[in-house]
Amino acid sequence: MADHKGSSQATVPMTLEGKIAIVSGSSSGIGLAVAQELASRGASVVINYPFPELKRDADAAAASLATPGLAVCADISTKDGPKALVMAAVAHFGAVDILVNNAALAVNMPFEDQTLDHWDQLVNLNARGTFLLTQSVLPHLRRNGRIVNIISISARAAPPLQTIYAGTKGMVESFTRVWAKELPPKYGCTVNGVSPGPTMTEGFRAAGEEAMKVLGPTIEATPAGKRMGEPEEIAYAVGFLCEERSRWVNGEQLFVNGGLYVD
């Protein structure tokens, strides 16, 4: 499995040099892998983290990028956080070329046990945060820009225990399709989605052995390999969509999950 890691970053030319990218929720996990992928292609990346206590890790992540990066504390689940993130990016870099809407949370529990607190937490971050962050970016998005939404196979595969999470990701999928029709004529951008399956992030590693046992049947059913995805594999798909040569790809959802879900 280690053979996958870093392979895309080792040989990719600097095709995004001069581009400015914002990646929400990017101090760890898939978001950090996306930031590293875009930086490896030459983009300057804004790392986003939600809480002040994460500053040290976020600053270290930004400093480790292949190009000079910036770490910005902004809680995307709040009404003001998305705009604060964009304003900090524009103040530092002057404009935005790429937005990756990645910040999200999941709750896995029986439908009867899910509460309005869970609803507010997930809807405010996963759906409203994506909505507000994209709105905030548009006035600063340069022509030939890229908007990439991280969705999830949960939006289509309808897994038990994910009523609210799957619903919010369904909203993001719908945003992607609508924006792909509405925004390019106005802003000269493209809008696409990337839909991961189970991915071996820090969160999954911390979930413990029992959680991995629950995932066992899902992993066993993955056609391309009986394993979880790697963050770098998700990031590579995002990088592809951000390339100049992907300018004719618009309104697509790339399922990066080893064929676990096939449309």
Rank of each mutant, 00 (worst) to 15 (best):
G251A: 01
F51M: 01
A21H: 04
A63E: 13
G229R: 05
R156C: 01
V46P: 03
I47K: 07
N102Y: 10
Q162Y: 12
E37W: 01
G167R: 00
E182N: 00
R41G: 05
T78S: 13
G188I: 06
H140K: 03
I150G: 10
P184S: 08
G42S: 13
S152N: 13
F111R: 03
I153W: 08
D80C: 07
A35F: 01
D59E: 15
T163E: 03
V45Q: 05
G197V: 11
A66I: 00
K186W: 00
L215H: 10
N250S: 04
T134D: 12
P231S: 09
G42A: 13
T163W: 02
A58L: 12
Q114K: 01
G167N: 02
G188M: 06
D113H: 02
I164P: 00
M212W: 14
V172F: 07
Y261W: 15
R205I: 10
R205H: 06
N101L: 13
R245S: 08
Q135T: 12
P217D: 01
S7L: 10
P196E: 10
W119F: 01
A33V: 06
S77G: 15
V23P: 05
T222I: 11
F240M: 12
A104R: 14
R245C: 05
T78G: 05
D263A: 14
G225Y: 02
E243V: 05
A89Y: 08
S77R: 11
N149V: 12
W119P: 00
S44R: 15
M171L: 11
W248G: 00
E252S: 11
L141S: 07
A71S: 14
A127H: 03
G203R: 11
L32S: 00
M200G: 11
F111T: 13
V249I: 09
V72N: 13
V262D: 10
S246E: 03
E220F: 04
I76E: 07
K55M: 08
K5H: 13
V148W: 07
T218L: 15
A95E: 12
A127M: 12
T163P: 03
F240W: 04
V86A: 14
I164G: 01
A10I: 09
A206M: 07
E112D: 03
H140S: 13
V96C: 11
E230K: 08
T15G: 09
K169A: 11
P185M: 02
A60S: 13
T190M: 10
T134C: 14
A157Y: 11
M228F: 07
T15N: 14
